[in-house]
Design a protein around this nucleic acid. Structure first.
Lengths: 218, 218
DNA sequence: TATATTTGTGACTGATAAGTCACAACAATG
DNA sequence: CATTGTTGTGACTTATCAGTCACAAATATA
């Protein structure tokens, strides 16, 4: 996490630096990303970065924390108990996520590109830990849906949780694969990931739900 | 693809070299893998590799081709028309895949680790192309199942195909995530990926089928 | 055996990038 | 204004690796 020196910086400078690195890590994997390039574009010395952060990984973890904190302000509002079933809840998560994307394109792009780092050797452990937590959360949700009688009870909650987890990722990947969204281009044009594509996104989510609810619901 | 020089090599030497690189690329991503290390372990000169292959990527593509050719000898035998429904066919693919794994551990490990290269910058294009073809194949299968009345017809074949594609990957990932298989360890002990785990594998496949067939079947 | 062709070699090049450090500039304090 | 602490600097160090090339060894051919 950042050193005191970084926290002491004036807000505008902190933002300048944060944004520049978000931009770099939104387009490249951890190992590809070059601090040397970013400081050049920022017009500051390489050494300065090491006054602010312990090392590259420390900087990267700061960016993750920063972005998830911001995203949580949006999706954290969505509570299961406010929705009639898991699927409405799931859809609402995406709707709030869309708003996050719209209002914080850079943060959104960074998180979107995070999956590209999943096998970058230097951050594999970090990523595995994050994945573990996310999957646990989905398993917990599945468990609750089974207990409350919403989901069938003849399939292990672990398999259900894992597939729900994969479902979220699959939607994002399918949109990218089919060319509906194009992160590399969007970030260059300073646009959100899902700019102009809300309808398509919602439609695809609904199709996935329509397909999978028959598999999960009791 | 390999130069004539490589093809002229005696079988045992070809195998020695192929195996050494399979081992390296089974454990590391493309960019991590070090030709320098492998030639050292082989006791041959770096230059020799460049007598055999154009460059690192050329060598890598040869390994992919080699492994898929061998795997095809197993799963290529499995034909949809010999099974009553898609799910029995799907299960049979895994059963033959298991046999491939058992009889060609090194090749199997290499293919297994291939997914870890999906975002290695240097092979992204190659990987995207492979993925495109695989997904197309699944889309085609979904299309046929819809046409023949096995799958429901109110969901686009593209979404169905994409999820079927993801299903195969998810099973592999879930086994790894839950610690049932441990490729890094297996390869060190010169064991197949799914050594001793056939029952668990089949069980998990059946659970996924049991869950998803309700979503897909008409 | 002499010549030509193919295969093997490993020191070297060039490129890249994270992280360091001695020093300079700036800011705060008394 | 002088002293002390904080922040900024960028050339330099260290390490890595893919790919090259002039030369050597081995093999085939005549």
């Amino acid at each position: 996490m950042p050193k005191q020196t970084f926290l002491n910086l004036k807000e505008y400078k902190k933002k300048l630096i944060t944004d520049a690195f978000l931009r770099e890590f939104s387009v490249k994997t951890f190992d590809e990303a070059s601090l040397t390039d970013v400081v050049k574009s920022l017009g500051i010395a390489k050494g300065s970065i090491y006054q602010y952060f312990d090392n590259k990984l420390d900087l990267f973890m700061y960016l993750i924390q920063e972005c998830t904190t911001v995203k949580m302000k949006y999706v954290g509002l969505v509570k299961r108990q406010n929705y009639s079933d898991y699927w409405m809840f799931f859809k609402a998560l995406y709707e709030h996520g869309f708003q996050f994307d719209n209002e914080n394109p850079l943060h959104s792009h960074f998180l979107h590109n995070l999956v590209n780092n999943l096998n970058s050797p230097s951050v594999k452990d970090l990523y595995d830990e994050m994945m573990k937590q996310t999957i646990s959360a989905f398993e917990e949700m599945a468990k609750n849906e089974i207990k409350s009688g919403h989901f069938r009870d003849d399939i292990s909650y672990k398999t259900m949780g894992f597939i729900l987890y994969k479902m979220g990722i699959a939607i994002q990947e399918q949109l990218e694969f089919s060319g509906v969204i194009n992160p590399k281009e969007s970030i260059q044009k300073k646009r959100p990931v899902y700019y102009d594509k809300k309808e398509t996104l919602i439609q695809l989510i609904e199709e996935h739900i329509q397909l999978l609810r028959l598999a999960f619901d009791k």
